[in-house]
């Protein structure tokens, strides 16, 4: 009897409690599938987002579900089972786009609907403090004078920093040996220990080492001077026609109703510009950049095309290796 009583009360509370923030979407928690490990870059950004989400979403929480591994494939396969009602969203970044061209995936990069872009991390070239390369020009001249001798590290084959480097070499007219590391941490170790002559890195990799004078930035691939490094010349200033950054955003199932997408986008627009969120993201060295779902869709489509070209050219992955 007593248990029944408690259950009845609980039910009554659950149904009768008026929504504290007024009606409308969302009426229940929203689940975000992060196809990366807990503690990884994508996870940290989503957790920071989850901390401010309820403020703008009728008090409903953003629940994070990590399904790590294989550049997001198992996670996105799980995401494909979600109902298109706006209550399940997923993390999307360039590595996930690249993966769709590296191997056969049951989805394409462009089949989901963009909700919003959250952060935008620019690429830069780092060298050890004692490197003979003082400017980007030095590095390019060295590569031209000594073909095949320049080694440039990246954070993993098929990752964003690898593609940034390929694109850079095309624009600079040089060819370097691409040396993959298992992630940004080992890459920074590789530059510090002189294993590679330079590294193609993503902000904020090596940030604390730059500040301590152990690493130098040769050039940074933002459209204008980067707010974190206003004294560092951009690639454009040094004659390299290239702007490149890694986007991290949110996608929803393709059939999600437009009004739900708009509601989600509005929630995230407020959350991403929330001062608390901005501070947390700046603390991890990243740059909050809100873009609408439509704009994010465009970036994914563009990236997808560029990446495909490079993958075909380099004969990488499972599909184009013949």
């Amino acid at each position: 009897m007593r248990i029944k009583g408690i259950a009845a009360v609980a039910l009554a509370v659950a149904f009768a409690a008026p929504p504290a923030f007024g009606g409308g979407f969302p009426e229940k928690p929203v689940e975000a599938i992060v196809p990366w490990s807990p503690g990884g870059g994508g996870d940290l950004v989503f957790r920071a987002l989850a901390a401010v989400f309820p403020k703008y979403a009728n008090g409903q929480p953003l629940l994070i579900k990590n399904i790590p591994g294989a550049a997001g494939v198992p996670g996105i396969i799980e995401f494909m089972k979600a109902k298109p009602d706006g209550y399940t969203i997923a993390h999307w970044n360039p590595a996930q786009t690249i993966k769709t061209h590296m191997t056969k995936t049951p989805y394409t990069a462009t089949q989901f609907k963009g909700v919003a872009n959250i952060v935008n991390d620019t690429f830069y070239h780092l060298v050890a403090a004692d490197s003979p390369f003082k400017t980007l020009r030095d590095m390019i001249d060295f590569a031209k004078a000594n073909p095949g001798k320049l080694t440039v590290g990246n954070a993993g084959t098929g990752g964003g920093s690898h593609f940034a480097e390929v694109l850079f070499e095309e624009k600079a007219g040089i060819a370097a040996t691409a040396v993959p590391f298992q992630g940004g941490g080992p890459l920074v170790t590789g530059i510090l220990s002189g294993q590679v002559m330079a590294g193609s890195c993503t902000i904020p990799e090596g940030a604390s080492n730059i500040k301590a004078g152990q690493l130098r930035i040769l050039s940074i691939y933002s459209p204008e001077r980067h707010p974190f490094y206003p004294d560092t010349p951009t690639g454009l200033e040094q004659g390299i026609d290239m702007v490149f950054s890694a986007y991290r955003g949110i996608v929803a199932p393709a059939d999600t109703p437009p009004e739900t997408l708009r509601a989600l986008q509005d929630i995230f627009r407020k959350a991403i510009t929330d001062p608390g969120f901005v501070k947390q993201i700046n603390d991890i060295g990243s740059n909050p950049t809100f873009l609408t779902g439509a704009e994010y869709d465009k970036i994914i489509a563009q990236d997808s095309e560029n990446f495909l070209k490079v993958i075909k050219e380099l004969k990488m992955g499972d599909i184009y290796n013949k």
Partner: peptide, 26 residues
Amino acid sequence: LGIPGDVQTAVMLGALMLIGVRPGPL
């Protein structure tokens, strides 16, 4: 160095940065 050696220290790095402590030479 601010460089994590394994998964666990990588997560520690992330957690520290979120609270405004940046491990590294400084």
